[in-house]
Design a binder for these strands. Sequence first.
DNA 1: CATCGGCGGTGAAACGTTTCAGCAGATGCT
DNA 2: AGCATCTGCTGAAACGTTTCACCGCCGATG
Lengths: 341, 341
Amino acid sequence: MNASIRDVALRAGVSVGTVSNVLNRPDTVGEATRDRVLSAIDALGFVRNESARQLRAGRSRTIGLVVLDISNPFFTDVARGVEEVANAQGLSVILCNSDDLPDKEAAHLDALSEQRVQGVLITPTAELSPHLDALRARGVPVVLVDRRPSGPDQCAVAVDDVLGGRIAAEHLLERGHRRIAFVGGASGLPQVQERHEGVAAAVRDALGSDDALTVLSPEALTVAGGREAAARIVGIPAARRPTAAICANDLMALGLLQGMVRHDVRVPDDFAIVGYDDIDFAAAAAVPLTSVRKPRHELGRRATELLLSEALGEGHRHEQQIFGPQLVVRESSMVRRETAS
Amino acid sequence: MNASIRDVALRAGVSVGTVSNVLNRPDTVGEATRDRVLSAIDALGFVRNESARQLRAGRSRTIGLVVLDISNPFFTDVARGVEEVANAQGLSVILCNSDDLPDKEAAHLDALSEQRVQGVLITPTAELSPHLDALRARGVPVVLVDRRPSGPDQCAVAVDDVLGGRIAAEHLLERGHRRIAFVGGASGLPQVQERHEGVAAAVRDALGSDDALTVLSPEALTVAGGREAAARIVGIPAARRPTAAICANDLMALGLLQGMVRHDVRVPDDFAIVGYDDIDFAAAAAVPLTSVRKPRHELGRRATELLLSEALGEGHRHEQQIFGPQLVVRESSMVRRETAS
DNA sequence: CATCGGCGGTGAAACGTTTCAGCAGATGCT
DNA sequence: AGCATCTGCTGAAACGTTTCACCGCCGATG
């Protein structure tokens, strides 16, 4: 059914080598021959067989991207950055979703391994999978995305999340908030732990201790998790209730916002919210969310560049690029409180 | 660097055929031999070469999914459904984003074609690409997603968008709205045109003509497009200004909501909004959005099932499954207006 | 006129699997 | 004992490319 290079050669009256040359090094072929081959290709509807190319070449024209949550716009934005750079190099991207489940992640990594991808970009689940080490051991470049590496022997792009947590907290402290909640506590993800750490440090610096920091740990880092946190917060007696919250990501911040509004807590008047990631929906929320911006797109682009550099070899040095977070202040935190310790 | 099946055979002291049997038909191999082979595989860190398998098999273990906008949660939800069914069959999904650009779409289709994917799921751009026909001509199953086919000779899953537009409009008409806006008009996408059609028909049925229907056509079907529409709506003199809007998707509805709130128009008290798709963010908006629900996940699942059925051949009949839309009423339209024609 | 270099092309090997006909030896049946 | 059957394994062909050594021809060169 599918014409092969041999069929084309036959029809054009040339050898297969020549057809291959027309495809890959057109300038080495005489014009008349080239035209004949091209029209044969056209007539037969010939399409290259990528598998055969790969088999011969030893590797594919593909890279893998494994994300924690395809439903989180943060990751689709990263994916856009990745695809941009990859496509510019003629590479395809296989986008895999792990849902933060080690098993799913492992299955995806195995599949990518079998496909002989040129490299893998991954935001790994809480623990670094042995499948990942296996991949690296086989010489497949791996770049960690939004996650610092354990050692210096691998590439990574990440954001300084301790600093991100700190500037979020300092913003709220400056505005007079004295009781603050951090939403997302129990997650095993280092990114989240670092954000927490930064928040706690800022609170300690300002108030002497972090007793005033309430840590909430919803089931999942999702909108539903944020709503869950809202219910918990309004359940706290007013005297001890936080007046502001920092969420470990914007999905939770949106859920929290929704939950507070539903409980007739006005945002930001009665309660301030700061999110994290600065996804587009943060600005589009009915009360636009203050958020800690990460260069999502750039994260994806840079990670892919590092991956490609490593894939090409040539004296590649592992590089860990840490981007600075940036606080984007919007309505959800735009009220100054009377400092009533 | 990468061990091949031959290395494994050598180390285990068997033939390559036997190794292949261990991998694919373990029960046909003696236990002792099998163990020897397995430990050789382990020792060498052998990983199957998928390219070689594909080359031999003539097709890959992969399907392609081409969506219009990876940033639209509607599509990531569809993608989840697709991945679920595909992974259950041991297939990988290559997710491609066309951004509604025919060129990008064509490039992706070509790449998928070269990869000899088992089939392609696609929400095509406005016009059906010749690349798509080429694909089908080569015998690659194609299933249209969220788009009705032009003829009966192909599979599709879609939603009755005329009906969807109608129920959205009827809902607003019932609530006493007499001047309604439809946001998304100029898009060439048939889905959007059908929604428009349904809205217009309902308005005509209720009011005798669709003069009272204002059609707005933002640049893009995005949050920014919705904000743009809001600016336009508040610019209309109060006497002629619509009291409600139906948006062609939820992204625009969210943008519209945000824009209206920013212009101090209260939703739903002063202005009602109905979205389309019912993405999760619709319910999570600070004013939860009334929306026309499409079975996003099911759409993806069903499309994949149809694709697989077609890929397996065996008397496959092309099937066009149209799902019913369902109005989900939330706060953004929850006010009854005095009927003041 | 012999030689050389370049151009345009050929043909076969190699990539790593899967598949299949075939074979040796063990087992069961008459 | 003779024959059929089954079990477990072998070896080679085939999939469609790319690559590379090689070859014939032609015009230019000394």
